[in-house]
Amino acid sequence: MKIPYYPGCTLKTTAKPFEDTTKAVSEVLGIELLEMPRWNCCGTVYSLASDDLMHQLAPIRNLIRVQDMGYDRVTTLCSMCYNTLEQANQLVKGDPEKLEKMNSFMDQEKDYTGGVTVVHYLTLLKEMGFDSLPVKNPLKGLTVVPYYGCLLLRPEEISIDNPERPTIMAELLAALGATVVDHPYKLECCGSYHTVDYKEVVCEKTYHILSSARKRGAEAVVLSCPLCEFNLDFRQKDLEQELAPMPILYFSQLLAVSLGLFDALGFDQHYVDPEPLLKEKGLLR
C-alpha cells in the first residue's frame, strides 16, 4: 500500500524514535510511506474560534499538498497533528463558504476540494488486521496500559475509535502478545501545553495517571502522542510525590520490538529508559 505520510514537526525532532520505528515497521508490513515533499506545521492545537480562519490555513494547506501529490488519503502519527488536520478538514468539508474564503485567500495554491481524508496510522494498522501482523518476538510477560489522552478521540466526529470506550490500542498490544490492563485514566488529559507555564498542573496529572497505572500492575504506558510522551515521561523528574520510574513507549516502538526490529528504537531519547524492563523480560536482542 502506498500512502502519503505527513510527519509533523515533533516527529522530526524530539519524537524521532516514533517516526524511525514506524518507518522500519512500515517497510516490513508493506506500507510505503510517501513522505510529503512539502509540508508545514499542522497548526498545533485546532483553533476553536469559528471566525478565525487564519489558523485553519496551515492544516488545509497541508491537505492541498496531499491533493497535489495525487492522493486522497494521508497518514500521520502524532495525535495532535491528526487531530488538527482532520478537524480542519471536517470544518471546511461541512462549510463550503469557509472553504471558498480560504481558497480565495490561498490564491497561489490550487483550490482544496475537500477530497482528502486523514487516517491515523493506528487506523491503518487496524484496516490491515492486527491479527495479520507478522509477530516474531511476542511481548510475552510484559504488562502494559494503553493511554489515549484526548486528541485521538475528541471531538467525536474525528475519533479513531469509540470515544468513551476505545479499544484500538489495547487490541493492537494484545495482538503483539502483551498483557493489557485497563485503567480509569486512559482518557485523562495529560495537561498538554500547560507543561510550558504551569508545570505543576502537568505533574499532578502525570502522577495520577502513572500511579493508577502502576496500581493496576502496568509496567509501561503506551501512547501515540509526543506531547503526552513528554509530559508523562520527562515530568517524572519533577514529581513531588514518590513514584517508581514508569517507562513510556510509543506503540510503534513495541510494534518494532515484536517484529524483531531492534535498530532504531531510540530509547536513549526517553527520560525513563525502557530498556532495562524489556531486557528483563527477554524481549530485546
Binding site: 508545514n40 506545521c41 490555513l57 494547506r61 485567500f105
Partner: peptide
C-alpha cells in the same frame, strides 16, 4: 507562523 504564506 500560521502558514498564511504571505511571505512567500
Amino acid at each position: 507562523c500560521v502558514s498564511c504564506n504571505t511571505c512567500t
